[in-house]
Design a protein around this nucleic acid. Structure first.
Lengths: 110, 110
DNA sequence: CACCTATTTGGCTAATATGCCAAACAGCCA
DNA sequence: TGGCTGTTTGGCATATTAGCCAAATAGGTG
């Protein structure tokens, strides 16, 4: 495999990996609506604040969110506006899984 | 957080996690072109065939690919046609990272 | 059936991710 | 300055992932 292609695949994988966690997806969904401070996100997620801070750091390092310190609170927002669209495809996969399950129950299982 | 929402986020995360590996992204890109047998994919990836088989199994369990045994070869194809579109957003992130790096070098770093 | 090819599975080790607690830091206010 | 609130960082235990080898399985053919 070509070196450049490999680098590109790795870069893509890093972005996807950063998104591939339920709490981080929740963060992304919330930030689609509005910027939020860490404490708001922590409350929604219901985990330790240090855990949430680390999730945010993963998203920041992946270039997905950016932070903005105001007073002693830190607000996060999406750097990329396309996340919603992005999920259409994930939804297709889930939809298709659901259909497969139905077909399976109906007797089409291998 | 609502139980249903949590389940939904977990389902999405599982799909993203399945995609979040360079070799699996390569597989997805190749299958966008055409179905491929395991041996072809193994050659492209350049890893042990058992490793590739496990990657395929991850993608299959996530509902992203399906397999089709013909003779003693197993062919894989995408179950979902939207993967290319899906990546537009990842590309935006990468693009934006690149721009940030340029701005940084130009002196805009914090 | 014996043998060959293609693929999957089991088992192991090394690397990475997750989540909590405790400690450090930063900004604000008395 | 001292104390308070909000956030990040370090450290650790546990869990998950990745990749290789070896063994098992499945299909095809002599």
């Amino acid at each position: 495999m070509d070196k450049q292609r490999k680098a590109h695949l790795e870069a893509r994988a890093r972005v996807l990996k950063a998104m591939a966690h339920p709490s981080r997806l929740l963060i992304i969904e919330e930030l689609e609506q509005n910027e939020r401070c860490v404490c708001e996100l922590t409350e929604m997620i219901g985990a330790d604040i240090s855990t949430v801070s680390k999730h945010l750091s993963v998203l920041r390092q992946a270039g997905i969110v950016e932070d903005d310190k105001r007073g002693n609170q830190v607000y996060y927002r999406l750097r990329i506006p396309c996340m919603l669209k992005f999920f259409d495809c994930v939804e297709s996969v889930l939809q298709s899984q659901a259909e497969a399950r139905v077909a399976c129950l109906a007797g089409g299982c291998r």
